[in-house]
Write a protein that binds this DNA or RNA. Structure first.
Lengths: 202, 202
DNA sequence: CATAGTACCGGAGAGCGTCTCCGTTTTCAA
DNA sequence: TTGAAAACGGAGACGCTCTCCGGTACTATG
């Protein structure tokens, strides 16, 4: 008998559990997209045809549920980094990815909660999504530094933080335009000082 | 008899009402600073020694209360714009004010809710605070445009939006530094394109 | 000062959400 | 087949928001 993994024969996960989990995620996704991140959890449980207890066992906190709902999307977003890096010059890849980020946020308000990890207290639960995004950003910034397109003291999280604002204040017809202008400002502001102008101070 | 104001003899406002209002504001300020914007309103009422009814009569929604609590601070912040504009060159005034904004946010999390007006649904209540801040920002940007320090197509709210992100993700020891770096990036990115230095491709 | 009229108070309580506890049911492995 | 572990699910305790309305305390007038 080939034991699944190592010692202690961990029982196979029950399939009803897995099924419930998936139903909850599906319903939750729809609820969050439709009613925002404040949708009633008991309501979600009801629609998924499980008891509140079941929901809370799978996802102990509201944050855990949101996290799980959006994880796959965030992963997709993060993985786009590799593609961009492979097919574009560093600075273009950086810009393109930031624009993609804007699009993701625009399409649904998906990434905001992940970026937003620290707003409402110490919820370490978004941490993994956040670091995915941050990792992608850092790679791109690093590459752009190496090519000399942006200053070596540029900090990826500075840029990321700026994007959070746009994601949260997303409103008004102007919004996407504003976000895209902001990307350009950020990139322009990260470029090396163009002329070796002799600065007298500092 | 000299009537206080015009017609219809509006009765003098009762002083206990005024007193209650002030007590509520005081307690609320402390509560919001200490427990964040989610503090229990009934709890605030209790500490202010009034019934919940009284609190809700004065401030029909949570937002109205927050708005009222922070209004004076926001006004002070906005008015600093005039001082800066009067005593500094445009670009310096802009930078200085943005840094002041960072300090305000750092000291307490005061301005965030005002900037953040649109996050959780259509609460038009921050609108006035928000437009105060936005007005200040726009004046400074306008002046900097006229002096040619920044590009004429720069949009004040773009910059403001970026600041919101920093204000919300305010955490970690690094935070204030990051915010200040971001201010520099934003300003650098808003400057006119410098002399077209010939870049020999990446 | 007395009186009338009203602006304001305050708390009981309905309604909604969150989250837990635990008896019951389902599934897996031997 | 069967025992035990795993998961279910809902009753219900608890906290928060917000309203309604009988009672109170203030202001203006005679």
């Amino acid at each position: 008998m080939v034991k699944k993994s190592s010692r202690a024969a961990p029982r196979r996960p029950r399939k009803d559990a897995q099924l419930n989990r998936e139903r909850i995620l599906e319903v939750a996704k729809s609820a969050f997209t439709h009613h925002g991140g404040e949708a009633s959890l008991d309501e979600i449980a009801k629609r998924a045809e499980v008891g509140p207890g079941t929901l809370y066992r799978h996802f102990p906190t509201r944050d855990a549920l949101i996290e799980a709902v959006y994880r796959s999307e965030v992963e997709r977003l993060a993985s786009a980094e590799g593609k961009f890096a492979a097919t574009m010059p560093p600075i273009e890849a950086l810009r393109a990815w930031m624009l993609l980020l804007v699009d993701y946020i625009a399409a649904k308000h998906i990434v905001a909660p992940a970026l937003n990890s620290v707003v409402g207290g110490p919820s370490r639960l978004y941490e993994s999504s956040r670091s995915l995004i941050q990792g992608a950003m850092e790679s791109l910034v690093q590459r752009a530094k190496e090519s000399g397109d942006i200053r070596p003291d540029t900090d990826a999280s500075d840029l990321l933080r700026a994007m959070v604002g746009v994601s949260l204040v997303g409103s008004g017809p102007d919004w996407q335009q504003s976000a895209k202008r902001l990307v350009d400002i950020l990139i322009a502001g990260s470029r090396p000082a163009q002329k070796p102008v002799v600065r007298t101070g500092a």
